[in-house]
Design a protein around this nucleic acid. Structure first.
Lengths: 154, 154
DNA sequence: CTTCCTGCAAAAGTTTTGCATTAAC
DNA sequence: GTTAATGCAAAACTTTTGCAGGAAG
């Protein structure tokens, strides 16, 4: 984990009146190492020994402190990544079969075009716009291969 | 409800081996009338008398038949709208405070630009691309007004 | 030493399921 | 008539919470 990340996490937690405990450091490390969004079942099953209620509470604390972000997925459980200002604005490739997510960047100029257009649209709709969310939905290479073979979900 | 919609729903359900019952017609009507995504609590509380388990089962059946679509939100419950090929490709304005969603169109040319760029990105990532999802997150006019006044969620 | 965090177990929320009855075809 | 849909209640699942004990500052 980079020194910056550690220091930033400490600072943000402190200013939210919270401590940078071993478990929280562990969670942040885990998310940083994964490099793509991680689900709570993954975390709980991951041999880290982290306890269910603590994971939920700590992710909530880290989210409130602005260190992590909870993503919205079509799965039935939560998925988290480091906050956008820590890892940069990006989007996700989502596999509609296995649910796995992968980070992806879109070209700068498309991003700018998008921003401008969305600002106009939001303004017209009386919306105080904060951000956008753009996901690509499809089949990851693994699932595309399996779909040819098996019938789990034609 | 338009004649087309009714006929389409019947056809799609039949070819999935399912019946077009009163409740299913009611749900489709409800979604069509709403004109924006409707949550399951909304449906259950809406005086329709529809029962919880039936609503869940019928929305699942309708989704599998390709008549409705379940949306992904940051709320803790499901939200549905009519299938995209019935109401057209569009995106959503989402209020991060009250969760309400509103349909919104983006300009044709932006949509095309986006499509082309995303196809390239998906291909590069080894993804068999199916579609994209673009949401605008912000504060709806109502919530923007209230935030000035109250402190529920600064 | 004071405050917050942790863990266990139990509760709360949404969604799913078993089974007898009713409706669709 | 046969098969699928409905309603009720109970289960399953993720997430939240109460409370006693332990760690952080």
């Amino acid at each position: 984990m980079s020194f910056d990340l550690d220091a930033t996490a400490t600072a943000r937690l402190r200013s939210a009146g919270q401590r940078y405990t071993t478990q929280r450091r562990q969670l942040i490390e885990l998310l940083a190492d994964a490099g793509s969004p991680v689900s709570i079942p993954d975390i709980l099953a991951g041999g880290s020994g982290l306890k269910q209620s603590s994971v939920y509470r700590n992710l909530a604390a880290l989210e409130q402190a602005g260190v992590v972000r909870r993503l919205v997925t079509d799965e039935e459980f939560g998925r988290y990544e480091l906050a956008e200002d820590l890892i940069g604005h990006h989007h996700h490739l989502v596999c509609s079969r296995c649910g796995k997510m992968r980070d992806v960047d879109v070209p700068q100029d498309l991003e700018r075009t998008l921003e401008r257009a969305l600002d106009r649209i939001a303004k017209r709709a009386g919306f105080a716009r904060v951000s956008h969310r753009l996901d690509l939905l499809g089949l990851c290479a693994d699932c595309a291969a399996e779909v040819g073979t098996d019938t789990t979900r034609a």
